[in-house]
């Protein structure tokens, strides 16, 4: 019998913590809306984001990284956007805006400053490999979801830290997943917290739902975006990129590959191609350490 004290906070406390979290840049949402409007031009995107210098700097860093595959170095926003094209602009915008949130240490999850960023980017990169292989058409939405899937950890971190021993003990002794153990000890888990943060930030419901589902084997097989996110996350962990203390402490649904529309050979192909991409992603580490 494991002695576990009653969960000492509820989602209300998480919501209170969210109030301290800087809001996801509104300009990014506006820019994404402009990209959805066929009447607008890419120069309209530039007009919206050019005054957010931190965001522009991050966008230029990412644009010049191997992840986004431009052959020439660019130093100004207009050129970067013109070279990237609509889909890549979406990805750069989200990654650039997410960078400050995801490049902080998470001592509760025993993750160094680079771990969450590396894991998030790795998950996003592998999601791109999966989209390409299985023909998932909404690859930009999957990329966004993958970048932000662990955002709940930045809020839960301060609660997990003092009670990590309890969470791990429950997971080890009961065979529960880390999420189940988080629920037992904290009354919520980082996927639920993440979905709440993204809802607060006005992200579309399908993205919030996939983030909510990404560790729940019964839920992530219900829709393809959730399944592809769960698979991207699993492969990123299997490849050992940015793995925290919760890493392998999850149960995987036997129906996952089918729900994602991915065959056994596709999975191997994606693992193969993800490795090369991951090593390119690693270069991003240097950027946030600058």
């Amino acid at each position: 019998m494991i002695a576990v004290s009653t969960p000492n906070f509820t989602l209300d406390a998480v919501f209170e913590s969210m109030a301290d979290l800087p809001v996801f840049p509104k300009v990014v949402h506006k820019a994404l809306q402009v990209l959805d409007d066929p009447k607008k031009k890419i120069s309209d995107v530039s007009e919206i984001i050019k005054f957010d210098q931190g965001l522009v700097a991050n966008i230029l860093k990412l644009t010049n990284s191997a992840i986004f595959g431009l052959r020439q170095q660019v130093t100004d926003l207009d050129t970067a956007l013109a070279l990237l094209g609509n889909q890549k602009i979406r990805e750069v915008l989200v990654a650039g805006a997410a960078m400050p949130y995801l490049s902080r240490p998470l001592s509760g999850y025993e993750m160094a400053p680079e771990d969450l960023w590396l894991h998030s980017m790795s998950c996003a990169v592998v999601s791109g490999v999966i989209s390409k292989r299985i023909g998932f058409t909404d690859s930009s939405t999957l990329f966004t979801t993958a970048i932000l899937h662990d955002i709940g950890k930045i809020v839960l971190d301060i609660y997990v830290g003092p009670r990590l021993g309890e969470v791990l003990m429950i997971s080890k002794q009961r065979g529960n997943s880390f999420s189940e153990a988080e629920w037992s000890v904290l009354g919520t888990d980082h996927a639920v917290a993440g979905a709440a943060i993204l809802t607060n930030w006005d992200f579309p419901p399908d993205i919030c739902r996939a983030v909510r589902n990404h560790h729940d084997p019964d839920l992530y097989i219900q829709d393809r975006l959730s399944a592809c996110l769960a698979l991207s996350n699993i492969m990123s962990i299997q490849l050992g990129f940015g793995v925290g203390t919760d890493g392998f402490r999850y149960h995987i649904s036997p129906a996952l590959l089918k729900a994602a529309g991915c065959g056994q050979e596709d999975y191997y192909w994606c693992m193969d191609h993800a490795i090369t991409s991951f090593y390119e992603a690693e270069k991003l580490l240097n950027m946030i350490m600058d």
Binding site: Q238, G247, H251
Partner: peptide, 14 residues
């Protein structure tokens, strides 16, 4: 060769 707490054979690459 780490593995998840439970995983289907098709994903048990370790």
């Amino acid at each position: 060769a780490a593995g998840f707490l439970s995983e289907p054979d098709e994903l048990a690459i370790g």
